[in-house]
């Protein structure tokens, strides 16, 4: 039983071994990762490590597999039929795809923000504390505290503090997306996965979100998928360029955008294709 403890439900917590491993500054490691949708291979031998506390941007043209890769990290692809994977993906040294791994516990450590703002049709308060609710937290003070903390962190508190009981669907698009960020960080995760969080927003809302991502950096490890190369350049420390399911190049953002090693990366970041 002890041997299996690393993969049981309430044990998706870093052990000493894991902490030692992560002290090197790596939180996620992807090794020889392949993925097929039925017969079609969507990811080819992806190898990369994500640094702790950094903002990592995944860029690439449509259909290059960056969203797929992101959704593999918290196993949101599980429900898709005919999905087959090969390779390893670890978080703090623990295999995300080990048989019988506690997916629910994994997701609690990885908040996710989606392309389209997707607040629940509930009040603002209930939206933010939802991760705590499903965790069985009932104490009103604790919930209020978490709500306030998360909304402040998501820079939304001042705008909504007067109407926490209003329906979240009444917020503007940008506010809704910041609410989703607040919800994602309410359970205090280690990693924030962001799947094109600004693609449905106007430029002003986008800049608010970008500022927010910058503020959250350090506290959380952020992996962001984006189509917008300026955005990647502005907010990320590391950038991965993917093309046709392959990781073409991965490195520091400055290097990627100024003097990439790969020809295709240069073509893409300079807008020659994509």
């Amino acid at each position: 039983m002890d041997a299996a403890a690393t993969t049981t439900r309430d044990a998706f917590e870093p052990t000493e071994y894991h902490q030692a491993k992560s002290s090197q500054g790596e939180i996620i490691e992807i090794k020889d990762f392949n993925l097929w949708y039925g017969q079609a291979q969507a990811l080819h031998d992806v190898n990369m490590t994500i640094e702790k506390g950094m903002v990592t941007a995944l860029i690439g043209p449509s259909g290059c597999g960056k969203s797929t890769l992101l959704r593999c990290l918290n196993r949101m692809n599980d429900l898709i039929d005919n999905l087959k994977i090969k390779g390893r993906m670890t978080m703090d040294g623990m295999d995300i795809y080990a048989p019988g791994v506690d997916v629910i516990g994994l997701r609690k450590r990885m908040g996710m923000v989606f392309q389209k703002p997707n607040p629940f049709p509930k009040s603002i308060f209930e939206n933010v504390v939802y991760p705590l609710r499903v965790d069985g937290v009932r104490d009103r003070r604790e919930l209020e505290e978490a709500c306030r903390r998360s909304l402040e962190a998501a820079a939304l508190w001042d705008e909504v503090k007067e109407r926490l009981e209003d329906n979240a669907l009444g917020l503007s698009g940008g506010q809704q997306q910041r609410l989703c960020i607040a919800r994602a960080i309410a359970s205090d995760p280690d990693v924030l996965l962001m799947d094109e969080p600004c693609s449905a927003l106007d430029p002003i809302a986008t800049s608010r979100i970008e500022e927010l991502i910058d503020e959250l950096r350090g506290t959380y490890t952020i992996i962001i998928v984006t189509h917008n190369m300026q955005q990647a350049a502005r907010i990320s420390q590391n950038t991965a360029f993917m093309y046709l399911g392959r990781l073409i190049e991965y490195g520091q953002t400055e290097v990627m955008f100024t003097s990439p090693f790969q020809r295709r990366t240069q073509d893409y970041v300079t807008g020659r294709f994509g």
Binding site: N74, M76, I104, G105, R107, K108, M110, G111, M112, F114, K116, N118, P119, F120, P121, Y130, P131, V134, D135, C180, R183, A184, S187, L193
Partner: peptide, 15 residues
């Protein structure tokens, strides 16, 4: 019920 609500809930760590 739109898939994105289901995804949002599952991503929050709900069963």
């Amino acid at each position: 019920v739109p898939e994105h609500l289901r995804a949002a809930s599952l991503a929050c760590g709900a069963t």
